[in-house]
Design a protein around this nucleic acid. Structure first.
Lengths: 204, 204
DNA sequence: CGTATGTTTGAGGACTTTCAACATTAGTGG
DNA sequence: CCACTAATGTTGAAAGTCCTCAAACATACG
């Protein structure tokens, strides 16, 4: 989907990684959010807003598409589904705010560490991270466009995290030997993801 | 309102400027959004989420508070109000994404220029900017916490914009002598605010 | 009118970028 | 299955942007 398009159907990522991004006339790009398996793509249905950003896949993906009329019906009948969509929008909001803090305040090493922690937590919550290890399809260029730094500096910074024994990254696979130390190094506190506790409270 | 609080009542800013912000243990702060007159404060009602950020005023403010039960009733009866709230949430989203691009990709002068343009556009849309001039209650420290830079660098950068004849800032009043050149200097395109066109389409 | 808050300016240093070259990996077609 | 080409990763040196520290100045508030 490209910037300026009218919001398309609601989609859900079943497998693979995608992202939302915005570009500048000079060619620079900024990835604003990662879309991981289980994430909802557009919940704009019915608002007829022009999208202000683009969406792209970062790996091969399997994506489910919701039929608009059925979705509307579902939303009328099932308040919990409506609530889930609203929850998703608030979580997105919260993740965006945290990204702003992360990219704005922390410097390279802590910034990447925090980003890695977030991915870990999100994948963990959908069962895709076992023993602190998970698939990592991102190139260093991708990471640069997420963390607002050049791929060269991403490379050097990942090297530092490696030398510090905080991460192992090989063949598109990331593993975190010492999760506690990594989280502490960048003050990662997963509250902002609203993952466990709130999922429980929305059960009844 | 402070981080960790449970989301409070829905409020609307009638006059003055406020903001949402997050802090780091070392004392650094990042302002993630400005709340201008007409903006809605929390539309989280009923979700019982812990807030992941704090809210503060940046000037003296006049704020309206909505009665939770009346608001719930209103939302049931008036689909347009519900739509307006959803629209507000999407706009917030969009503004956050643009801030991420702005702070991440542009450098100091263009970054501040773009920020100033955004404020102008938002104030303009609620009738608070006449002839490209408007109230500017922010200190340079505030601006630094918005744009992720030190107040010293904000000072030097504002000086540059002044010398370039792009802004005039005196006694808490900002005016933009050459709006077109300012907007062009930072590639400001207000689409992402979804201001005019969409307000029209939600009229019927 | 004094004190706290905010602005302005200088010099030096730190982090990050840029440019460039080279090594490695992944993808494609024979 | 291998060979070849494009994409990605890695490393060095130099330059820039921005930050830190510090002090002087202006402004706002009680």
């Amino acid at each position: 989907m490209a910037e300026g398009d009218y919001a398309a159907r609601t989609r859900i990522i079943l497998d693979g990684w995608a992202c939302r991004w915005k570009g500048l006339p000079n060619g620079q790009r900024q990835i604003t959010e990662l879309l991981l398996p289980g994430d909802i793509c557009h919940a704009h249905s019915g608002m007829l807003l022009r999208s202000d950003h683009s969406i792209a896949t970062l790996s091969t993906c399997i994506i489910a598409e919701a039929d608009p009329t059925e979705l509307t019906a579902l939303l009328k009948q099932r308040p919990m589904v409506r609530q889930a969509l609203r929850w998703s929008s608030l979580q997105t909001n919260s993740i965006l705010r945290t990204a702003l803090v992360n990219n704005g305040l922390r410097q390279a090493d802590q910034r990447l560490a925090h980003f890695i922690c977030e991915i870990w937590a999100r994948l963990q919550s959908v069962g895709l991270a076992k023993d602190g290890a998970f698939s990592w399809p991102l190139t260093q260029i991708d990471v640069g466009e997420i963390a607002s730094m050049t791929s060269v500096h991403v490379n050097r910074t990942l090297g530092k995290l490696r030398r510090d024994g905080l991460i192992t990254l090989h063949k598109r696979r990331m593993s975190l030997p010492d999760m506690a130390r990594l989280a502490e190094s960048c003050d990662f506190r997963p509250d902002y993801l609203h993952l466990k506790a709130e999922l429980g409270s929305s059960d009844p």
